[in-house]
Amino acid sequence: MKIAFLEDNQHFADETIHALSAAGHEVKHFLTGRDCLKAVTSDTFDLCLFDWEVPDMSGPEVLASLKLRSAVPPVIFLTGHDAEEDIVQMMEAGADDYIVKPPSTNILNARINALYRRAHPAKNPIESVDYGHLKVDFTKRKFMINLEAVKLTEKETELALYFFGHIDVLLSRAHLTKVVWGTTPDIDTRTIDVHVSHLRNKLNLLPQYGWRLISVYHQGYRLERLT
C-alpha cells in the first residue's frame, strides 16, 4: 500500500516508517505540510497518515486544502491531543480515524488495513465469516452463537452487519444513522446507543471473545477485533 506520511519529528517518523515498511507498505515521508500537499495532489496514494501539528501547516489545514483540489484517499491523524474537543474537531475536518501517539504497531496496521478494505471492497462479497464462537452470515443476514441463531430486530441486524463489514473502522454517529435508518428524519439521539447496547449483550461483543465495541467520545463507534 502506498502511504503519504506527514510528520515533523524525524525520530518518531523513523520508528513509524520502520513499522509500516515491515508490514509491506510503501511510505513517502514529508517533513512539511507544503511538500506533502504538493505530492498528494500530483501523485496517487492509498492512504494518508498525518501528524496533527506540523510547523508550517497544521494537519487539518493540509486536509482542508486537499479536499478542495481532488479526491482524497482515507486520512488517519496521529496526535498527542486526545481530548474530546480535539477528536471532534478532527472528525469534523473529515478525518476517517485517529491514533493517539505513540501507536502500537498492531493498532497502526489494523486501522490502516481496515480503511484500505473499506476503500477497496472485494469484488466477490464475503458470504460468511466464522469467528469461532460467533458466525456471521452476510447473505442470509444471520448471526449464530454456538450453532444457535441470535434473535435480532431488523435494525439491529442492519447495524450489526454494517459493524462486521467495517471492523476496526471508526464510524461516526451521523454516518451510522444514515446507513441504518436511512431517510427516517430526526431519529432520537438515544436510538443508536440503545441498539449498540443490545448488540453488545446479544452478540457477546466482549474482550474475552476477542471483541470490543467502543464509543469514541460519544462521537462515533468502532467494532474492534482483538488479536
Binding site: N9, H11, F12, E15, E53, G80, H81, K101, P102
Partner: peptide
C-alpha cells in the same frame, strides 16, 4: 505536557 512532553517520551518508549 500533553504534546511536547508526552510525545518524545512516547518515541523514546518506541525506540
Amino acid at each position: 505536557i500533553s504534546h511536547d512532553l508526552r510525545a518524545p517520551l512516547a518515541s523514546a518508549m518506541m525506540l
